[in-house]
Every structure is written in structure tokens, then in C-alpha cells.
Amino acid sequence: MSHPSDDELVDLALGEPTGDVSAHVAQCAACSSAVTDLRRTVRLVSNPGPYAGWQAPDDAVWTRVAAQLDTAEDAIPEAPDASGTAPAAPSAPVVRLDRPGRRRTAAWAAALVAASLVVGLLTGRAIWGTTEGGQVAQVALATLDTRRTEGEATLVRAASGLDLQVSTDTALDAGDGYLEVWLINADGKRMVSVGVLRPGEPGSFPVTQALIDQGYVVVDISKEQFDDKPAHSGDSLLRGQLPA
């Protein structure tokens, strides 16, 4: 007998009387395996367990995902190789970023970020040390989806310490909420709020060198609601990673 049809195998799996179909399946490995799969499906669909509705993760989880991708993939070319010689490093981001499917502008922007980051990695803390007062690091802030640059963040060394200055090209729409500025850690897991930004106005926020040294280098502007939740809403408007 030739192989039974799918319908016949389903009927067999459901325990309907099938006559010579079961005789065939008993000695055919492929059909026997198909029936086993169908029976397993029946078993699993029949017993969904104590299912009591879907539970969404906290909104901040998406922010962590986006931050991790921004820092790990699009900005950091490769893990810096301690034993490697410095001049070899800059070639790494070109290879990584020049892959099919990326929009050209995004790749170009990412390459810029990556290039500046490589400079930062190569020269290390020297960049920070040599600048006395004034600008120590700057990054364009772009939308997460289209990567359009709509603002910038600058780390400035002031008399009292470090200031993070944030400005946007146009006033961001806070809806019926407000805008909050965050520093997200490059590990994508931790973040701190640095203050509230008024739509259409530049903001300046005191930060510490220790914070930057610990990896809180992703500047993020989010839209927050007037609720009782101090955590990030997950609704990020602009973001950019400070070099080094």
C-alpha cells in the first residue's frame, strides 16, 4: 500500500477506525513518526495547563533591548582585543556594517559613530584627561526607528564637574506627559534618570565622571506619563551613545 494521506494519518492519530492505514503505519517509520507528532500535538493542545492569560513584561524591557542593540551591535565594532595592535582595529567596523539590507544612511551614520568610538577605544581615557573645561564628548541623538538625527547631547566639563547638555532640533511632543533624560548603561540592563527636559528648550544636567566610567553612556530621551512609576516608560524618542 502507498503512504496514507495526511487526513488518514490525522484520523488514525485521533483514534478513528482506519483499517489498513494502521497496518501500514505499524511498519512504516515515516508515517509512524507523523502519527506520533500528531498525537503529541493533540496531547499538548488538549492540556494547556493552568493558563490564566498573558502577562506582558515591564515596559522597560524593550528599552533594555533597544539599548543593548544600539550599544553592542551598531556602535561597538568588536570587543577591543587587548593583544592586537592598534592600527588593525579601525578595519573591523567597516566589515561589520557593510552588510546587505541596511539602509545606506543608517549604515553611514552608524559607521560614523563606530569610527568615533574606535578612536575613543584606541586613545582611551586620554581624550578625557587632556580636555580641561569645555566639550569632552558629543553625540547626535536620533530616533530609534528611522535613525533620523533630531538632537544632540554634549558632555561638558564645568567647574563643578561634568554637565550633560541636551538639545533637540525641534520641540519634542511630550503629549500629556513630560520628557525625561536618562543615561543607560552600555550593558543594556541599568539606567539612571538625570532629569526632566522641557520641550523645545535645551537642558543641562549635572552628572559624574564615575557614572560615565561605569558605562552609563547612552543618552536617552523618553516620554513619560504622570503616573506613579519611576521607571522608564519604554517610550524612547531619541537616543545616542557618547563615544568612549
Binding site: 495547563g49 502577562q55 539590507g101
Partner: peptide, 25 residues
């Protein structure tokens, strides 16, 4: 698969409750 980040965001909106519920259980 074409590299559209917004597609990932949309997938997250649709299926993160499924993923989260499985992990939670």
C-alpha cells in the same frame, strides 16, 4: 530578516507577552 528595526519593535509588541508568559511559567 531585511534588517528593519521597526519590524523587531512590532514583533516585540505582538509576541513579548507570549515569550514572557512562557519564561515566567
Amino acid at each position: 530578516s531585511g534588517g528593519d528595526r521597526e519590524a523587531l519593535a512590532e514583533m516585540y509588541r505582538r509576541w513579548s507577552p507570549l515569550v514572557h508568559t512562557i519564561a515566567l511559567r
